[in-house]
């Protein structure tokens, strides 16, 4: 469409605005599609998180934590792949400068995905997933990113992880070796915190929730400590004695 630089008749104006309409409609439709995909991602991610919790609390004889963690992560892998392919599907809608435009519509799902992914990663490796690793999970086979991961999404996704870790620690505490697990999570979360505290101001609200989660984990670790200090035996041996009593 070639038009004069100034629009001097109703017809040229209408032609130009017709073009604007197409552009706006395109934009709105794309936004809608991305919002829908983001909701799908959110739902699948929540299911992954439940699956991980479920696997970690299954009664499977004497399986140790490492084994359980690997099993949980490998069970989650399929669903995580599914989510990744949803992101792959959004790729054309998010190419070039579009990602920055639609980021806020994609963020809710993306953050929930990072929460799920980092939880699986923690259970398998007892470590925090790095920015690089998250970005790598959102690349095609050639290692080209579907879109550039924003720092904000990475950090906000991780903030939510603490909530899940708190749930994990509290659910584990009444199981064999729970004390150790509560302590591990406690140190892990503190470490994450201490790493970030000096840098961030804007994450405040989320960090308040993280702080509450940390306090809950600390309270759980405390409860075990207080109770075992009353007896003069190593805590593993105490666990065995209790198990003996409770065995059906």
């Amino acid at each position: 469409m070639t038009l004069p630089p100034t629009l001097n008749s109703r017809d040229t104006i209408l032609a130009v605005f017709d073009h604007f309409r197409e552009e706006l409609d395109d934009h709105n439709d794309r936004r809608e599609r991305l919002i829908k995909s983001s909701r799908d991602v959110t739902n699948l991610s929540k299911k992954v998180i439940f699956l991980l919790h479920r696997t970690m609390t299954e009664d499977v004889g004497e399986a140790d934590d490492r084994t359980l963690g690997s099993r949980a992560a490998s069970r989650a892998r399929g669903k995580l792949k599914e989510i990744q392919s949803l992101f792959a599907g959004m790729r054309p809608e998010l190419s070039g400068d579009r990602y920055a435009r639609y980021q806020r519509n994609v963020s809710p799902g993306l953050q929930e995905y990072i929460e799920a992914l980092s939880f699986a990663h923690y259970l398998e490796h007892r470590a925090l997933i790095s920015y690089e690793e998250v970005q790598r999970s959102l690349c095609d086979d050639d290692g080209t990113p579907y879109f550039p991961l924003s720092l904000e999404d990475y950090l906000l996704g991780l903030s939510d992880l603490t909530g899940e870790l708190m749930r994990f620690a509290i659910a584990s505490i009444s199981r064999r070796g729970g004390r150790q697990k509560a302590n591990d999570v406690c140190h892990f979360v503190r470490d994450y915190f201490e790493g970030l505290t000096p840098y961030f101001r804007d994450l405040r609200k989320k960090q308040a929730v993280t702080g509450q989660s940390l306090e809950k984990i600390e309270d759980a670790a405390y409860a075990v400590a207080v109770r075992t200090s009353e007896f003069d035996l190593p805590s593993e041996m105490l666990d065995d004695l209790v198990a003996q009593m409770v065995s059906r």
């Binding site: 209408l14 605005f17 604007f20 706006l24």
Partner: peptide, 13 residues
């Protein structure tokens, strides 16, 4: 009026 006619072509949120 011409401009207004243009605007009324649009579907706005």
């Amino acid at each position: 009026k011409d401009i207004f006619a243009g605007f009324s072509m649009l579907n706005l949120k």
